[in-house]
Structures are given as structure tokens and as C-alpha cells.
Design a protein around this nucleic acid. Sequence first.
RNA 1: GCACCGAUGGCGAAGUGGCUAACGCGCUGGUCUGCAAAACCAGUAUUCGUGGGUUCAAUUCCCACUCGGUGCUCCA
Length: 490
Amino acid sequence: MELFNTLGGRIEPLEPAGAPELRMYCCGPTVYDYGHIGNFRTFLHVDVLRRFLKQQGMTVKFVMNITDVDDKIIRNASAAGKPISEYTEKYEKAFFEDSRSLGIEEPDIVARATACIADMVTLIEKLAQEDIAYQTEDGSWYFRIARFPEYGKLSRKDFEGIEDGARVDVDEYEKDAARDFALWKACKPGEQSWDTALGCGRPGWHIECSAMALKYLGESLDLHCGGEDLMFPHHENEIAQSESATGHTFARHWMHVRFLLVEGRKMSKSEGNFYTLRDLLLKGYRASAIRFLLISVPYRHQMNFTFESLTESTNAIDRLRTFHQRMLKGGFAEGRDEAVAAATARAEQGYTASLANDLNTAEARAAVFDLVRAANSAADAGTLRAGNVGEILRVLDLFDGVFAVLKDNDAEITRAALGWAEAEGRLSEAAPELVENLSFSDEEIDRLVAERTQAKKSRNFARADAIRNDLLGKGILIEDSKDGVRWRRK
RNA sequence: GCACCGAUGGCGAAGUGGCUAACGCGCUGGUCUGCAAAACCAGUAUUCGUGGGUUCAAUUCCCACUCGGUGCUCCA
């Protein structure tokens, strides 16, 4: 497949260098709070890429880090009067729960910063031997950017003219050059710190990714991913550290996912349009719809997240699931229709080609909907035959191997979110209809549906409609069909 | 302020130097149904932010402007 490479600014083939497996690294979350939909848009697109690569027959080794020590964590943990490990544990657990809710596959290796201090120290020592890392009077260590002439090659920045002295912060007077960045921060009273050969302190942010990526994936990785904001300075600094230490290209391919907008505006707490996954689940939106929406706009485009489009996603998934059930149910006449077979082949081809083309998820999605329309149409007209079903289901499986929205776990996920809200004393944030809907057991619904069927048989339509409307008010939809009555939660 | 990216129907959104501008949702009408729902059919942008330019031809290339976003500082 081909993927845009930030390094070089071109679409290029993505393939492993020599080794049979593709080694990819993604900058994971800083676990100081619950993840928001912007965070998950990034991880979701990385998941889409990883799933597609595997589907294409590639072996992928995927490492993601967890930043479990940084300024915000130290500040928040201290405000909460907790050791940082206890503080971060909660949010790390929440992050993986949320990832699971969104259908994000777990990394092959999860690397925690606090578990890799020794590796970071070794890396900094190596840089210090070459005088690329230097220590200031307060005991902190910095990276000497003057020793890495290629600095800026990823973000293509020109640092001429804004070098030394141009904008030195008052509290950073000790650094040799303004842009030199911290590798190791000297310990301060009351802050978590580690006693190491570098002195007492804690790691800078950038060094952890270099140390962990090099540790688990070797000196030259195939792909490094993250949000667009990480391009500079984070990734630029990772390159500087890693390449100075190893002498090899740190990562050959770089993928950056663009930020999203919420209701046309930048998502921010002050705008009042800031949403975590849990916020949305409590409002009654389905996890599958959130996943589908967040991956439906290609990763390099800025996407506009709106509640209207979230409803659109919900309805679009319903259509796909209904179609999937229709195909699974079968009952078509013998034979195989050539026109349907051609539409199926076209869909598979379109799906694969679209994703192979810089992960165009919007086009891949469209290819599948084309098939849904064609096959539904043929099924209604009676031209779709039993011999077409297998290949249609195979294309749906292929699609779902990446999009992962056909299996309905939504009620279960929402129940878990309600359980969490209750435990946190935040149940009041949940939509009342949601609580009502989920408190309705499947058995109760089955009983009412059966009662309605009886009423219909005795042509008591008033009673039948009353039951249906009542359930609809609680978000439960009844559908009559040739093969009996179906119900589902909206 | 400097640099970069984007602007496509009611909404989300793909795409291309020239065939009817994908796809999804919504809406309207029809088929089906006791009525609905689901499903299908038909309709729903003479037009791709504004103004100029290049070209036989531009939504697609160039310039300016407007608006939105991002980076320059922590941020997915």
C-alpha cells in the first residue's frame, strides 16, 4: 500500500525494510485524564492502518507508549494527594477500556515510561559521551541542537535567524542555545524522581519515545505515527536524539493524523465542545457509531465532528447490519447471478484499492455501500441467488476486518459506561431515556413483543400499536417482516 | 506577526484539467404493510468560499482576499 510520508512530504509505498515484519510505533496517551474524541481519532486511524496491513498479509509489530510521568501528571497527582503511579493507573485502565469500546486492537507491546527509565538514562549517557547532551548547573540535561544539522527535516522548518538569544526564556538561561530541549529534568523537592547515573531527576518527554522505540523495535523503524501536533517539536526531537545516538535513520515513514473540529470549531474546554468518549456514551451515542464516524473521514483531512453526523453514522451502521443479517439469513433461490457477482467483485476491488491509496476510508466505505444497494436491489427483484451470498459475506468480512462495526456490542458498552458513571457519582450526566432503555431487560421486551403479536392476530391494532409506540418511546424499535417480528434498541 | 493546511448540496464527505460532481444521512413522492419499520425505486448541487488570471477547457493549476484550522509554547 501507499501512505503519505511526512518525511519528504510525498505518498510512498509502505513496506518493511528487509525484515519480514513491519515495525511500527505510535505515540500513546499521557494518562492524566480520560481520553477525548480527538485522541481517539488518532488511535482509531492507526488501528485502521494496522488492521488493513495485516489484512493485506503483512506481519506487523506494533508498539505504543504510555506517558505516565510528566508535568501535568505530577501536578494533578499532587493535587489529589496521591503517588503518581496510583493516579495514572486509573486513567491508563480507562484508556484501554475506551480503546476496547471503540474496537481498537491492543498494541503488541505497551511501553510505560516509568518502566524504562534505565533505557532512557543509557541513551542520554551515550549522547553525553559525544558531548551532544550536556548538564546545566541545576543538574538538568539538555540536547545540543547545534550538533544535529538535520534538525527540522521532518517538519521542514527553517531555524535560521531564530537561533541563540532570539527568544530565550528567562528561566532557561542556563541552556547553551534557546532551542536545546530537556532530556532529563533535575529533581525538585516533593516531585517524583529517580536516582540515576545522571543524577537525581525525571525524564524529559521526548526521550521516552526514543528509548522505548529503539528498545523494542531496533535502531530503524518502518513507521512512526501520532497526531499532527506531535510533528514539532516532539517527533523532531525524537529524530535528533535517536539518530545522534545510533547513526541510523530513526523511522523511515512518518504518519500524522489531523486534528478534528467539533461543530465547526476547535475542540476546547473553554468553547464548551470538549467531549470524552464517556461523555458521548452517557449521552446515548453508540460506541460503534463513534468509531465509524471518526474513521469515515480520511486521516489527513480535518474532520468536522457534529452530533448530526453522529446520528448519520448510527443510521448508516444500522443499514449495514440489517443488510448483513439479510445475507446471513439467506433463503435465496439456487444459482449465481452474474450482475450481482460483478458488483461484488467491484466492491472488493474498490474497497481494497481505496485503502491501499493512502488509507482513503471514505472511498472504501462508499464501495461497500454501493454493494449494499446493488445486492438489496437484486434481492428485492429476486435476481440475487444463493451462489452470490458467500462472496458478498466475504466482502463484508473484509470490510469489517478494518471498520469493525457489524458486530453489535453497543448495549453492553453503554451499560458498562453507566456502571462507571454510577461508581463515579456521575449518573446524573446520563441521558434519562438511556437509563430507561437499558433498565428494560431483553426478556421484558420479548414478552411485550409477544403480547403485541397476539393483539395483532386478534386484530386488536389499537393495543398492538400502543405497545409498539410505548417501546419506541424507550428507544426500542419493533419491525414486522415476512419471517417474524424483530426488535432492536435504537 | 511569520509559516503551513483547508473551504464541495440541508448535514457529513470523496474526487477530478474535459464523460450525468462518488458515498452516507436527511427530506419529498412511490412500491410493500392493517398502520408502521426494514428494503427498493424516483426526486433532491447547471454547481464545488469570493474576485481575478493561465488554458480550447478549471471545482481541479496560479495570485489576492475572506473565513476556519494547525505550528512557532503543553496538546491526539
